[in-house]
Design a binder for these strands. Structure first.
Lengths: 215, 215
DNA sequence: TCAATTCTTGAGTGACCGTTCAAGAAGGAC
DNA sequence: GTCCTTCTTGAACGGTCACTCAAGAATTGA
């Protein structure tokens, strides 16, 4: 647990006392993100982290608390990056549920296989296999995935209420179906699938949309 | 690497010399299978294995070589169990490609969420995140998944040749789509999805089958 | 200038990792 | 009974794990 919360309620001056950090916090967080994204939580050691971040263990623990706190901060940053926000953007910008899900699948195909960063979705894959001692990290990510499914279902329920979906449509089942497809696409990308393959998968997946391809 | 190959080419008598093993090989393999299936390869320690198997490290190494060899033997046994054979069975017993894939998805929904054993498919999830040192194990499982996709694609190509699929159908794309759906279903089951949910996902997934729901 | 504060450094913590080995126990062959 | 072989046992091996700490360096406030 970081003590940075001391800043809250301070009187004024923006300048911090004491020796300033010798590293750029955002830069070392980016290095940690890449490692966690590639290998997952458990398979990434503190030694690898300090090596990639260019700092010593003491600095890491002073700045971030411990490995788990660092990981949670990394996930938080990830969720505010393009790779973590494309779902929310699609829901915010697309007029219909159908357009939103079609865009989510297409964006996932592009982002999961983007060679600029590790493959797949970090929230999906970063704690797929975990020892008992790391259960809390696994539960943390599992809850993020469940929250995502809840957003899916809510949007689909709204769509049904608005008449975008037929009365026979099952929002919960559709939400879980699209969630499963996205998890599968993430894992396929980690197995080497490129954007073209994932896009084809996304298009096939949209055929499950109720009431025909016209929408 | 085990020295059990000495048996090959022996003169006759079925009785083995020396002190007999004090454990049932199939039983301890079952215990190891359960652990690897639950936690994955890397997150399962030799200490946990010997504890669950009821043997000491020396016996484990004498009988199975090392952790990686034990894991490969576990995977081999897994692939000959119901949980590892349902795909092959569907292809062998179903008359059409459509019926085979529909059965594969339905069977996966039942097997992945079967409370009798750990959730999901072991080949899909047992090495999802892995350190650099365990790359060979990850590659081993990745190749098994790729082989499975090749079987999918071959069956779909045959179906296209036989006229079961329209000429516009893309066997490779369909194979990868169904592969992604299965990987997604496996991971959803590890997140707690039950057979009912996975069955609903399977039914939605089949809507991507070319040329309408009639087949 | 000098104390207070904050960060860096390097060495080190105990615990667990996968693995090995010598010694002893338990069976078949003669 | 005495080899010979095979397995079990208990105690280790070096290495890495996540993590800590005292001492020194760099900055601010007075």
């Amino acid at each position: 647990m970081s003590d940075r919360s001391k800043m809250v309620g301070m009187t004024s001056t923006g300048t911090r006392r004491g020796r300033p950090p010798a590293f750029d916090r955002a830069a070392v967080l980016a290095a940690a993100t890449r490692l966690f994204w590639e290998r997952g939580y458990q398979a990434t050691s503190v030694g690898e982290l300090t090596g990639a971040m260019g700092i010593k263990p003491g600095s890491l623990y002073a700045a971030f608390g411990d490995k788990e706190s660092l990981f949670r901060e990394v996930v938080q940053g990830y969720q505010q990056s393009p790779a973590g926000q494309f779902v929310g953007l699609a829901f915010a910008e697309e007029p219909t549920a159908r357009a939103a899900f079609a865009r989510i699948l297409r964006d996932a195909a592009r982002i999961y296989a983007d060679p600029e960063h590790p493959a797949g979705c970090m929230v999906i894959s970063a704690a797929a296999n975990v020892a008992a001692q790391d259960d809390e990290v696994a539960a943390f990510l599992r809850e993020l995935r469940a929250a995502n499914l809840a957003v899916f279902e809510e949007r689909l329920s709204t769509a049904k209420r608005l008449g975008e979906l037929p009365p026979t449509a099952d929002p919960a089942a559709l939400a879980r179906y699209f969630g499963a497809v996205l998890q599968g696409m993430s894992q396929r990308s980690r197995d080497g699938a490129d954007t073209a393959e994932l896009t084809a998968t996304a298009e096939l997946a949209m055929l499950a949309w109720p009431a025909g391809p016209v929408g």
